[in-house]
Design a protein around this nucleic acid. Structure first.
Lengths: 226, 226, 226, 226
DNA sequence: AATGAATGAGAGTTCATTCAT
DNA sequence: TATGAATGAACTCTCATTCAT
C-alpha cells in the first residue's frame, strides 16, 4: 500500500495544489465580499488579492456567480459544526433552539460579511445555475442546518418545552428568516439609522428578538425543565 | 372669462402632463427594480420602458439615486394611510398591532416589489444623498410609521394587552425588521426554494410569523379583552 | 418726417426690444465666459441667466458659435474707442504705441475674461462661419485696431521715435500677439505657477514685457522727443 | 542557453510591446490634440485611431488627464536636450539666448502640435491632478528649461552681452511667454488670417519677434563680442 | 415670439469575460 | 497551467439643438 501509491502521487499533489488555489481565490473573494458586498467585488480585485491573474480565476470558476456560490458554500460548511455543537450542549428542546439562535447571533457578530453577502446575494434575481456542483453542496448544507433545527424542535415538542401545535418545519423557517431580517437591520447600522428618524440601539435588537422568538414557542413545561 | 378658470387650464395641463411623465418614469423604474433589484436597474432600460430618451429622465430626476428615492417615497406615502386605518379599526393595543402587521402582509402581497426594493436598497453600499429632498420625505414617512407603532404599543401596555416589560421602541423595530426578513424569504419564492432542499409552503410563513410575534408580546389581559 | 415715422414705430419698438434681448443674452453669455471659459458655458445656463428659454436663444443666434462670435464682437467694439483715445493722448509715435500697449494691459486687467475667452476661442479648431454677420463685424473691428497701430507706427517712423527699418505691419502683429502670450501666462496665474517650479511674480511680467517691447522698437530720436 | 540571454527575451518582448502600445496611444492622442485641442480629443476617437478598444486605453492610462499629461511630458522630455545643445553651441550669453529662442522656433516648426497643445492645456478650466507622477515629471522638465535660460542670462549679464538691469527670472518668463503668444498666432494660421482683414505673412513673425526680443535685452558689449 | 420638453449622440469610465501566448 | 492584454457592451450623465405648442 505504501509503495504502490507513489505513481498517483504527482496527480494527487496537482490536485492538492489545485484545491489550495481554489481556497486562496475564495478566501480573497470572501475578503472583498466582507468589506464591500457582492456588487463591489470585482474579479480584477479578487485576482490581485489572490496573487493570480484574472484569467486564472476562470480556470477555477466558470464565472463570478460560481465563485460567489462557493463563498456561500464555505460559509455554510464552517457554520454547521458550530450549530451542531450548540444543539448538543443542551438536552431540552427549547434550550437547544435557544443555543442555536444564539450561535447564529454569535456567528453573525463574527462573520457579519457572510450575512451581508447572503442577503445581497439572495435578494436580486441572481442567475445562479441550480445545477452547478457548488450549488448542490450549498443546498445540502442548508438541508443539514434545517435538519438540526427540526430535530431540536421535535425533541422540544416531545419534552413539552416547545408548543406542540406548531408545525416544526414552518417554525424553523420562520425562526431562521425572521432572525435574518433583524440581522439585516443590525447590519445596516448607520445606513439604517439614517433612514429612521429616531435614536436606535441596534445592538440590543438581536438579543431582544431571540428572547421574543423563544417566548413565542415556549411550551407548557418550558420553564419547569429549563 | 369672468369666473371660469379656462385661462389657467393650459398651464395646468402642462403641469399635469409633467406629473404624468414623472409617474410613467417611476412606474417604469419600479418594474425594473421589482424584477431585478436596484443595481440591475439601468437608466437606459428605464428610459426605454418609459418610451423616453435617456436624457429626458434627467429632466425629471437629478440622477439614479433620486429616482430610486422617489420609488421608496411613493411606496411609503401610499402605505401610511393604510397603516393608520388598520390601527384605527381596533381599540385594544395588541389588536391594533395585529391589524398593522396584517396590513403589512397584505401590502406586501399587493406590492411585493416594494419590499423587494426596500431590501435591495437597504443593503449597504448605496451612496444615497441623505440631504436630498426625497430622502427627507422618505425619512419622514418612516418616522410616521414608527409613530403609529409606538402609539399602539403604548395603548396596549396601558390596557394590559401588551406586556409592560418590553421596551416600546425596541419592540417596534423588532416587529418591523423580523417581518421584513420573513417577507424577504417569501418573496424569494423560487430562489429560496431552490436553496432549501425541502418542500416549503412559503405562503403560510407570513401569517405564522405574525401569530408568533403577537404571542410573544401578549400581556396578561390580552385574551380577556381581545 | 416727424409725423411720418409713427407708423413704423411699432416695428421700431419691436426692433429695439429685439436688440435688447440680444444684448441681454450676450451679457449673460459673457458672464459665463468670464467665470468659466468657453467650454463650460452651456446654452442652458446662459438661457437661465438671461431669463429666457433655451429655445429663445436660437431665435437670436444660430448656434453657440454665433453667440460666441457676438461676444468677441462686443468686446472689440467697446475696446476700439479706448484704444483710439490712448493713441490720441500722445503725438510722438512711440508714445502712442506705449499708450496703446498700456491700454491693452489695463483693458486686460479690467476684462480678463475677454482675453481668457479670446484665447480659448482662438486656440482650438473652432468651426466658425466666416461668412456670418457677426464674424464680419469682428473682422472689421480687428481691422480698425490694426489700423490704429499702423498709423501710430507710421507717425513714429516719420518722427524718428520708432526704428524705420521695421515693417510696420509685422511689428504690429508681433506687438499684439506677444502681449497676448504674456497675458495668457499672467492670466493662467495659479495654473501656471503649478507648472513652473519657481516662485513667480506674475504681476510684474506685463509691464516688464511692455518696457522691453518699446525698447526694441525705439528709434534714434525716441529719447530726445519723448 | 548557458550565457545567452534568450530566456529573458520573452519577458523583454512583452515589455517592449507594452511600450509600443503606449507610444501608439500617445501618438494617436497627440494627433487629435494637434488637430482639435484638448477638449475635442475624445478617448473614443483616440482608441479608434490607435486601433484599440476604448477599454484598452485605461490599461495604459488611468484617465484622460493622465494621457494628456503624458503628451506634455513627452514633448518636454525630447525638447530639453535640444535646448541644452543650443545653449552649449555658444559661449556669449546673448548668443546662447538667441540659439535657444531659435531652437524654440525650430522645435515649433517641427512639432507645432506641441505648442498648440501646451496652450490649450494651459488654458484654465483643466482639472489636472498636480500630484500625479506625470505632472511631476512635467514640472521637473519646466524647471530644467527655466534653469537653462537662467544660466544663459547670468552668463550674458556677466559678459556684458545682456543688460544687467533686467531681472533674470522675469526676463526668462517674458521671453518664453511672449514667444508662445507669437507661436500661437503663427499656429492659428488660417484661423488667424480669417480674423485679420489684411494679408499677413505669418511665417516672418517668429524670426521678427526673436530679433526684437534680442534687441531689447542687448547689453553694452553685445555687438562687440558677438 | 417664446417656451421648455424632448432628443440623441457622445462623453469618460468600468468590468466580466475571452484568448493568443 | 497560467498570464494579462484586449475586448465590448454596459454604465451614468451632459448638452447643443429641435419642435410641437
Amino acid at each position: 500500500m505504501s509503495s504502490t501509491t507513489p505513481p498517483c502521487k504527482p496527480l494527487s499533489r496537482r490536485e492538492r495544489e489545485r484545491q489550495a488555489r481554489r481556497e486562496a481565490i475564495v478566501a480573497a473573494a470572501e475578503e472583498f465580499v466582507v468589506e464591500t458586498g457582492y456588487w463591489e467585488m470585482s474579479m480584477d480585485a479578487v485576482a490581485r488579492r489572490a496573487e493570480l491573474s484574472k484569467g486564472a480565476l476562470y480556470l477555477y470558476f466558470q464565472n463570478k456567480d460560481a465563485l460567489c456560490a462557493e463563498i456561500a458554500v464555505r460559509s455554510m460548511r464552517d457554520f454547521i459544526p458550530a450549530l451542531r455543537a450548540a444543539s448538543d450542549r443542551e438536552t431540552v428542546g427549547i434550550a437547544k433552539i435557544a443555543q442555536m439562535l444564539n450561535t447564529y447571533a454569535e456567528w453573525f457578530d463574527q462573520h457579519p460579511h457572510m450575512f451581508r453577502f447572503a442577503i445581497s446575494w439572495n435578494v436580486p434575481g441572481q442567475n445562479l445555475d441550480p445545477n452547478s456542483e457548488s450549488f448542490d453542496e450549498y443546498r445540502k448544507s442548508v438541508g443539514e442546518i434545517t435538519k438540526l433545527g427540526l430535530d431540536a424542535t421535535r425533541i422540544g415538542q416531545e419534552d413539552g418545552s416547545i408548543r406542540a401545535d406548531l408545525d416544526p418545519f414552518l417554525l424553523n423557517m420562520q425562526l431562521w428568516t425572521s432572525l435574518l431580517g433583524v440581522f439585516m437591520a443590525h447590519l445596516g447600522g448607520d445606513d439604517f439609522r439614517k433612514r429612521v428618524p429616531f435614536p436606535i440601539d441596534m445592538d440590543a435588537i438581536v438579543p431582544f428578538h431571540i428572547q421574543q422568538s423563544l417566548r413565542a414557542i415556549a411550551g407548557p413545561r418550558a420553564e419547569s425543565i429549563a
